[in-house]
Each structure stands twice: as structure tokens, then as C-alpha cells.
Write a protein that binds this DNA or RNA. Structure first.
Lengths: 187, 187
DNA sequence: GTCTATATAATGATAGAC
DNA sequence: GTCTATCATTATATAGAC
């Protein structure tokens, strides 16, 4: 274990701090809206280190957002509770400031050069990965419907922010969502 | 009817050309990614006219994107065919370059100052408007589910661009979508 | 390993000529 | 009603000192 003092000169820790700050800011403001200076400030490091460690802003985007684009942890658990877990994630708690790689891709999608790789990874790590887990007919179609529905939730909750205020309405929406997604999982 | 020559000095036509170009470019690249110069070029007018006619870039965004945020034309027809019409819109034809106000809001959503009004209008013109059209229990919850699903389609088709290549898979997805949305409409 | 200083380019906006 | 020219600002990226 290193001391706090030596950590200040630990390039790995510095790069990790940049990645963390970048993931948050790209999620919040998208690629064009998040400046390298702001990312460096939030990470508590100098701006020049971004080019130093990641080559360019685009390199930083790929290093921070792409690795987070995975749904494996959700798929490794019992698929009989998949719908409930997804719905719970978005409606119980609602982590406002947390980094959301899907949101980062959505908000950066106006920049084709930057999000081309991210889209490829989204297809592989999400749609294809879900389709593999599904039993029964039309697995791919159902997988597409699932990712579409989840994307829609992400959009409604985190982009449009139109979640019902009343607790019972929220619960009704969450339960309906859990049921509909689970129906797609079960076939 | 005015001649083509006099149209060149028709401020209304000029403003309209700017609005059209802006709607397209804001949809494609989002607010931050679409520069005023590029918008002016596509409209075939001078950049200075944007400030002249709309005050600012933000003013142009509101003048071009906000008025398009309406679903009235889709709701005015028979609600028994709502699901099929939505699904057909996204899967038959697939208008790549057309201006899509929802997409513009999504891709600009990293910029809070610009999209605050757009979100309000989305809630009113979409969720509330749909809820009013629905009969049966939990109209608001179902309206939220519908807009969530449609947003997800918009996202998958136009942002992530992960529509199945094979015609039969596409048709299967379209039909399943139409059915699921219609089920939400019917209660 | 990290900083300061700077090069270069692009942005939104405006003043004033035509 | 539309244009040219320009301003002030901000962006990413880099060279070189420490």
C-alpha cells in the first residue's frame, strides 16, 4: 500500500482519477460539452496530463467510456429476476450523478467519429450478450426489444427526467416495467 | 406568388430556410456539435442573419426544435392503429436525414440550459397528450410506458443504429413492437 | 511525473458597409 | 435585407522547464 504522498506521483492513480472524472462528465454533458480542462479540474490534475496519458480527448473517451459498456454483471445472475433487477436499478434509488456509459454514448452520439466504436461495443456487449442468454424462439428480436425498452427507461429517467413524483405511480411504473421486460426474457 | 429573385430578399423565406437547416443539423449533431456557420451554409445564407433573426444560437434552437415537438398528428387518427403506425414509421422507410426533434433533444441533453424548455414541452406534448387519449386504468403509467418504448425505438434505430439487416428479422421486430405498443394503448 | 506557457484553430456574436 | 470584417472567448494540443 502506498502513502497518500507517494500517490501524488503515481501515474497509475493519476490516470485512474482522470478516467473516473471523464466518465462522469461525459455522462453528464456528452463528448462535446465536457472540456478537457473541466475533466482535469475534477480529477485534481493538470490538463496537460490528459494528452500525456491518453493521447487525445478522443483517446480519453475510449479509455473511460468503452470499458464500462458491459452488462455482464446483470446477466451473470438468475435471469428469472432480470426484469425486476433492471426496473429496480432505475426506480429504486435513482443515482443521479453516477457515471452512466449508455448515457455518455447517447449524449455524444452527435459526434460520429467518437461514438462509432462505442456503438459496435454496445451491440456486442448488450444485444448479442442478451440474445445468448435467452431461450426460446426469436431470441434476437426479443433481445433487441429488451435493449430498446431499457434504453427507453434510461432516456426517460435520466435524459428527459419525467419519472412520476407520486410514490404509488412510480411503483406502478416500476412493476409494469419489470413485468414487461421479464416477459421478453421468458419468451 | 413571388419570383425566385424577390425571394432572395424575403426575410420570411430566409428565416424559414435557417429553421429547416437548423432542425436537421441539431438532430444530426446535437446543439454543441452543430455550429452556426454550418447551419447558415446549409441554409444558403449568411451567418450574421442567425443573430439578426433569432438573437442567438439558443434562440434558433428554440425556434427550430421546440415547435416540432408534437405528436398531435399521430394522436388525431384512430388509436386502434397507433401501434402499427409508430412501428411503421421507424421500420418502413427509415428516413435517415430527416429532422427528428426528439433526437435533437436527446443529442443536446448534455446542455441543461438549452434543453430545459424542450423537456417541459416533451412532457406536455407527448406524455400528457397520450395519457389524455387513453381509456382505462393507469392511463398515466401506460402513457409513460408508451413514450419510453417509442423513445427506446428512436434510440435504437436512429442513435445506436442497430436495426436487424435481414428483412424477416426486421419485420418480426416491427410487428412485435406494434403489438406491444398497441397493448399499452388498449390497456 | 507534473507543471507553465503557448500555438493554433474554431466558436458565437456584433458593428457597420452596402 | 444581406453582407464583410472582426472581436472576444474558448477549445485541444504541445514544447519545454522543473
Amino acid at each position: 500500500m502506498e502513502s497518500a504522498k507517494s500517490r501524488r506521483r503515481d501515474s497509475e492513480a493519476t490516470a485512474a482519477a482522470i478516467v473516473t472524472a471523464a466518465a462522469q462528465l461525459f455522462s453528464q454533458r456528452g463528448y462535446d460539452g465536457a472540456s478537457t480542462r473541466e475533466i482535469a479540474d475534477r480529477a485534481g490534475v493538470n490538463v496537460a496530463l490528459i494528452s500525456r496519458y491518453f493521447g487525445s480527448k478522443k483517446g480519453l473517451f475510449e479509455a473511460s467510456v468503452l470499458p464500462m459498456l458491459s452488462i455482464k454483471s446483470l446477466l451473470s445472475q438468475d435471469m428469472a429476476t432480470f426484469g425486476a433487477r433492471i426496473a429496480g436499478y432505475y426506480f429504486d434509488g435513482l443515482p443521479e450523478k453516477a457515471a452512466d456509459p449508455i448515457l455518455a454514448v447517447i449524449r455524444s452520439s452527435g459526434n460520429e467519429a467518437v461514438t462509432a466504436k462505442a456503438r459496435d461495443r454496445l451491440r456486442q456487449q448488450f444485444i448479442d450478450a442478451i440474445a445468448e442468454k435467452l431461450r426460446g424462439p426469436e431470441a434476437k428480436t426479443r433481445a433487441a426489444m429488451i435493449i430498446m425498452t431499457v434504453s427507453g427507461v434510461d432516456l426517460m429517467v435520466r435524459v428527459l427526467r419525467v419519472v412520476p413524483e407520486h410514490e404509488d405511480e412510480r411503483a406502478a411504473l416500476r412493476d409494469r416495467l419489470a413485468r414487461d421486460i421479464q416477459a421478453l426474457v421468458d419468451g
